[in-house]
Amino acid sequence: MEEPALVLEGIRAGYGDFQALFDVGLRVTPGEAVGVVGPNGAGKTTLLRVISGMIRPTRGTARFGEVDIAATPAHELPASGIAHVPENRRLFPHLTVEENLKVGAFIPSARKRFAERSEYVFNLFPKMAQRRHQLAGTMSGGEQQMCAIGRALMSSPRILLLDEPSAGLAPIVVAQVFELVKRIRDEGLTVLIVEQNVAQVLRVVDRAYVLDAGRVVAEGASADLAADPAIRNSYLGGH
């Protein structure tokens, strides 16, 4: 089966009367790792929520391969291959690591492959295997992030959406998270990652979009963006 591409065109979305995204276009081709960077409140999370069906765009089209995202209920999108690791992880702290993974494997196709997928996840995060019976809420922030990513991987996604996986983690753990993202993409999984850690994310993605106040203000190959003086000044703290 040919891998689907994610294509957004002219997306407008918001919350009630408040518009958070203005005519956003974005494309992620299979096998690519793409970043979305930008300041607080730029609309990065809103963009991922549109892609995983959590909010409906008021205008524009969003497609993942043959699937019309805007016309599909959110809970049916995981079955078409979209997995979203939400902002702040949103693990179930009162469930064990293994139970969190089981929630991630809720859809019928994933249940059938639970043993195989959990082995894959435990192989990716050996720590999770040791902690499979521990309550997720009692783990460190980094471990919880690994668990949240593992939970998303349980459904055998074809695109992984990550919303600030490095937020709130110690620098050494941040490096581990990015290392992991790199590994996942090197295995061929398509990744769309939102980050405020601009310098680090540009090292693991092929391309990136710069979102500011709900608009795409720049896009390009990571190396070009990292070298662009205007981008460096505005979003990389001028270093």
Partner: peptide, 20 residues
């Protein structure tokens, strides 16, 4: 397990393919 999960966080459930 989904029942125990949803009791804590219902908004996030569709991301796991669960229709609340």
């Amino acid at each position: 397990i989904a029942i125990r999960a949803i009791a804590r966080d219902r908004e996030v459930m569709p991301l796991m393919g669960v229709d609340p």
